[in-house]
Design a protein around this nucleic acid. Structure first.
Length: 400
RNA sequence: UGGGUCGUAGCUCAAACGGGCAGAGCACCGCACUGUGAAUCCGGACCGUGAGGGUUCAACUCCCUUCGGCCCAC
């Protein structure tokens, strides 16, 4: 059943390799390059959906197959009308397949050709996730962008391990594609069957390029992924312990070979400087836990570098986190107050820092898009990157 | 007023028996976190033992005096 394409993607401006585009999903339009906040368990931790929509204008967030599958479970979400209705979010959702948890929960799982057996981190029970199960779960969630089920090998994996992992990922990609198509042909997708508002069309399916730090494996993975054919292409298995220079080598070598008319997604990346660097290589989509996790644990990202809110030096500092930030937190609260909240273990500390960090990341991407459109990306990138090291330079100066 | 008992890091407590160079947790200070465990990890500073004296090569530990807390008698 082909109604309309799962997504459309149009590059509207280029500046070097960097590109600005417009992606249309069945749940709204997304300008790229885009940062997608991570909402693993059906919540972008520490935020209200009103803030995401109204204050931050977030167009798309992530959900996680593995985590939602374990809790609350597929039955609950299906009964409650799919993930969008369940959590109260009508904009786009991208769901990670659970493949990353194959890596991040390394000690709790066993991989076979068929799939991955997990020891649930929730209750210790044995659970089995495969390409088929992952596609079924993502269909039940009603995801708008479904990720293929992959295996993410460690960053320092030697060639033979990386090859095995890459080949397994390729076979799983084929099975993901087949199961996904089958489910769609039966319209078994909560995104269509449960939507209350006018949502039509199929979700998109993205493939994932693996291959670790080995360029030949990466190229082969890319070819095999392209061959299967996906709506978008992700690069996975980076920022998992390898040297940063290696990551950029892989990204810069791979980007020219990815289809230009499809969105490119660098999974799990990154810091503000990483985002801008990746954009310069032609990446369109990002997700990362840093703004939310580090916000929760007391670290703010600012235009002048990181601010560790816990530090005693802010105890009497009445300045906002970032004087050039227009977010609600910076408009209203001082560093001294935020430090107090954090030190007193008040939950508002995490909430406010998360909000600011997301605002900074989202605003950075807005400026990235704007600079690409106006042909000033290189200049923007240079100024932005210089700004990020301001605090470190001050520190170096005062200690020398 | 007697008798007993205790006093060690900011806090709670360790440092057998009959002396061997005082250490944990929390707090504090700082670091890390890249397809999320509000998880967690890592590092640092801080005490010379209530005070004074004595015995000893050596005292938180034994002796004397003193101060303070608690308990029991009166």
């Amino acid at each position: 059943m082909i109604d309309k394409p799962p997504i459309t993607f149009e590059v509207v401006a280029r500046d070097g390799e960097a590109r600005a585009g417009i992606m249309t999903t069945r749940r709204g339009t997304i300008e790229t390059p885009v940062f997608m906040p991570v909402g693993t368990a059906g919540t972008v931790k520490g935020t209200r959906f009103e803030a995401l929509e109204d204050e931050l204008d977030v167009r798309i967030i992530l959900g996680n197959t593995y985590h939602l599958w374990l809790r609350p479970g597929v039955d609950v979400i299906r009964e409650c009308g799919g993930l969008h209705r369940f959590i109260g979010w009508q904009r786009a959702l991208l769901t990670d397949s659970g493949g990353f948890q194959v890596w991040s929960l390394g000690a709790l799982r066993k991989i076979t050709e068929e799939g991955t057996q997990f020891r649930s981190h929730v209750d210790g029970s044995l659970q089995f996730l495969s390409p088929e199960v992952s596609m079924e779960v993502q269909a039940a969630l009603g995801s708008d962008i479904v990720m293929a089920f992959d295996e993410c090998a460690p960053g320092d994996a030697p060639p033979d391990i990386s090859r095995q992992s890459m080949e397994l990922t390729a076979r799983w990609a084929k099975r993901s594609r087949a199961t996904f198509d089958n489910l769609q042909s039966q319209a078994l997708d909560a995104g269509r069957t449960q939507a209350t508002e006018a949502v039509s069309g199929a979700p998109a399916l993205f493939g994932i390029v693996q291959g670790g730090v080995h360029l030949d494996l990466r190229r082969e993975s890319l070819l095999r992924t392209r061959e299967i054919g996906f709506d978008g292409y992700a690069v996975g298995g980076l920022s998992v312990g390898e040297e940063k220079s290696v990551m950029w080598k892989v990204v810069s070598e791979l980007m020219p070979e990815l289809p230009a008319n499809h969105p490119r997604y660098l999974m799990g990346v990154g810091t503000p400087e990483d985002l801008v660097e990746a954009v310069s290589h032609g990446i369109d989509m990002f997700d990362c836990v840093l703004p939310t996790r580090n916000g929760r644990t007391g670290q703010a990202f600012t235009s002048r570098g990181k601010v560790n809110v816990k530090n005693a030096q802010w105890a009497l500092d009445t300045r906002p986190l970032d004087e050039s930030c227009e977010c609600a937190v910076c408009q209203r609260h001082s560093r001294a107050y935020l430090r107090h909240l954090y030190t007193a273990r008040e939950m508002l500390a995490s909430v406010l820092l998360t909000h600011h960090n997301l605002a900074f990341f989202l605003d950075t991407m807005r400026r990235v898009r704007q600079s690409i459109r106006s042909g000033d990306f290189t200049k923007f990138r240079q100024e932005f990157t210089e700004g990020l090291s301001a605090y470190e330079q001050e520190k170096a100066l005062s200690s020398s």
